[in-house]
Each structure stands twice: as C-alpha cells, then as structure tokens.
Design a protein around this nucleic acid. Sequence first.
DNA 1: AAATCCCTTACGGAAATCTGTAAGGGATTC
DNA 2: GAATCCCTTACAGATTTCCGTAAGGGATTT
Lengths: 221, 221
Amino acid sequence: MFKKILLAEDFQDTNKGIVDALENRFQIENIQEELYCDKAFNRFKVAHAQGEPYDLLITDLSFKESHVERRLTSGKELIQAVRSIDPDIKIIVNSMIDNPIEINPLFTEFKINGYVCKGRNSLNELIMAMEEVRQNRTFVSPQINLNSANNVIEMDKYDIMILKDLADGLTKKEISKRLKKNKISPNSESTIDKKISRLFDEFGAKNTHHLIAKLIKQGRI
Amino acid sequence: MFKKILLAEDFQDTNKGIVDALENRFQIENIQEELYCDKAFNRFKVAHAQGEPYDLLITDLSFKESHVERRLTSGKELIQAVRSIDPDIKIIVNSMIDNPIEINPLFTEFKINGYVCKGRNSLNELIMAMEEVRQNRTFVSPQINLNSANNVIEMDKYDIMILKDLADGLTKKEISKRLKKNKISPNSESTIDKKISRLFDEFGAKNTHHLIAKLIKQGRI
DNA sequence: AAATCCCTTACGGAAATCTGTAAGGGATTC
DNA sequence: GAATCCCTTACAGATTTCCGTAAGGGATTT
C-alpha cells in the first residue's frame, strides 16, 4: 500500500475522519494532513526536492477563504501545480461535487487517478479507490455517471461570456457595443440574439430570465 | 458533560471525525451516529418514549438524496420534528452554511443552542460549543456575524414568490394571472412591476436578468 | 462551376419590460 | 372631519426582448 500520503482537506472534522480511517485500515506510516492548498504544495515540493516524494495525494476541490493570503485557492490549482512537477504521483480527489461535467476534465486534463464523491459511504469508497489506484487502475464513486456528461449541451467561451454579461444586467445592445470595442467577433445584436435563442431551445428555457436562472443554478455561469 | 448524544451527519468521513474527536475529548458514554434524518429521528423518538432521552443533538443541515425513501430530508426538518417532542433537548448545528440570513432563523424559530460552521477549526469550535451549551449559553462560530443579517434587505414571502416565478420563466402577465387564480392579493401586473422596480433599487440591479442572477448567487431564491 | 451548408448580419413586428404619472381607498395623524 | 401617508391599480410611452424572414459570404460537397 502507499507509504507516504499527503492529504489536503480544509474541514477539520472531515480531515480527522479520513486520517483516522486510513491509519486504522492501512497502518500508513506517513500521512501528512494540511488545511491549506499552499501548505500542502509546499510539503509536496520539499519532499520531492529531497528525493522522498509522496506517492499519493488526496485532495478536496473547494477550500474556504481565510485571512491567510493564499496563492493556490482550489484543489484544481493544487493538482495542476503538483502535476507540473511530478507526472507520476497518484492523485485521488475527495469532494462533494457530483456533476460529471466538472469531474470529467479532472481525469482528461489533470490525469487524476480516482474520484470519490463525499457521501454516506465515502470513507469506504476512498479505501477502495486507494486499492484500485495502487494497482494503476482508476476509480470513480459508483453514483457518478461520467457518461452522462456526454449528453450535456456544449457551450463555448463565447456563449458563456455573453450569458455572464446578461446576468450582469447588460442589454444585448450593450453587449454588442462591448464586443465591438474589444474587437471580438461576431458582435452584431442579431447574432447575439440568435445565440441566445438557440440556447433557449437547447436548455428548454422560456426566456432569458429562465435561462440565466437555470445556468446559475447549474453552476455553469 | 453530555451523557447521551445523537449525531446526524451524512458524510461518512465528517461523521467519523466528529465521533472520534468527541470520544477522545470527553469520554462520552453514549454517542449515536446516524447518516439519515429519519433514522436519527426514530432513535430520538424511541429514546424519548423509553424515558432515556438524548440530551444533545448535533446535526448537519443538508443531507444528500438517496435511493432510500426519506420523510425528513433536511436538518431543519429534523430539528423541527425533534423540537415538537422535546423542547428541552440541546441542539447544535454543524454545517458549512455561513450565511447569517439562513442561520438566524434557526435560533429564533427553532431555538437551537449552538451553530458551528464547518471549516479549518470546526472540531475545536464544536467542542467549545458543547461546553457553552452545557452551561445553558449559546454558541456561534466566531466567523459568523449574525448582526450583519440586520443590514440585509428584507424580502417577504410575497417578493420571493414572485422572483422565483420570474426565475422559472413566467412573464409578469402570467404571474398576475396565477396570483388571481390562487386568490393571492395584490395581483395586478402594475403592482408586480412596482415591487420588482423597488428591488432593483435596493439590490442595485439594472434589470430583471441582473436581479435574478444576483439573488440566485446569494442563495436567496 | 454549381449547389449546399452554415454563420453573420439586417430588418420588422408582436410581446414584454421598464418607468413615470395619476387616481382611488384604507389607515393613521392632526 | 381634514390632511397625510402608503398601497394598489390603471394607463401610456420608450426601450428591449423574442422570433421569423431574408440577404450576403465563406467553406465544403458534388
């Protein structure tokens, strides 16, 4: 089993629960817990530089803000930073997010090895994940259906930019002006109109209020 | 210290962290953990009926859905059910919510005794909360400023109902019709117009898109 | 080269939003 | 009782949204 584990999780109770479980279950020699991404990354760097690298990172995705100034503010950033230094370290994400759209890129872009969704069985799942990952397999909590991410309507950055502007209270005329000023094309009011209308159909929205409300609730804009 | 504690928390890792901490810190004789509100409530009822009631309930607010059919689906409902049977049991809420607007009513309406906000120090805070509550005082995590809830713009149920309708894509005309059908007054298109316009000013919103976006992001609708 | 497809843009009309004015009614104040 | 305040409602005009039609241009297909 893994010998040297780094745990990044900002909730004290969750953190303790995981540490206790792993120590009881696996008799891990060396498990280091951190409440901040930055501190976790520092530990990782030092260990790597000293030739005694961690062989597993377990990390949450969202970390609370705090009075401490932070450079890395999310698990995603931590993973990216860690991966840029060590392409081989195994990474398991332990988070409450259950949206395949957000989880999928973690595997494809950041090459994580396992995803455990916090819930009523997540400690057991974390242990399963560790066993799978140890044998160079991936693990995803069974309640997550990554395939459903394929059914999802695609929106490109342009669409999202316009929707954010709308949510910020700009009219289509104002958005058109802004795009022209910033030399972003296409930028006619008519095209913006069409883009939004297409999204109405795709998301089953009755009007702009409805569309914006849906997308914000889904965490897409 | 408390002798008989009931813990309702659906995340396995958090649950375990709390149980371990309390057992180490206080040598509680009897701490019962549950992952579901319904199961927690059943335990509570049985204990109460047998004349051996719990003297502290620690509960989360949000519980994940599951395949198991659930009657109580949130910590709020659990608290309400418990309070209706036992007005004396001490209740400490342990949740990640940090919005005073949502926390305040728990004290005023449901007479909870303590509120711990999940975070980097929340196990320690939970222990402090237990000591305070034990002495019939209340406890709130220091980072929560309940006073700031007073500065907040008030919206009554009527306002929120209309805003939710708008977010669901209804036009003002449709909302007016619906109110008339349900014999809710006032219900003229004009009054609805005025209500929304007032909220534009209060929330600094440029138009309805903007207002809805702001309020959903704030978790108010 | 012609046909086709897709994207951008313009335009127009119906509906909805936004804003201001004004009238009526109930409650409170003087 | 008169004056005042606040809430509800009606109405009207300017702006914006929504949706359909249509023209032009670039890329691909036939």
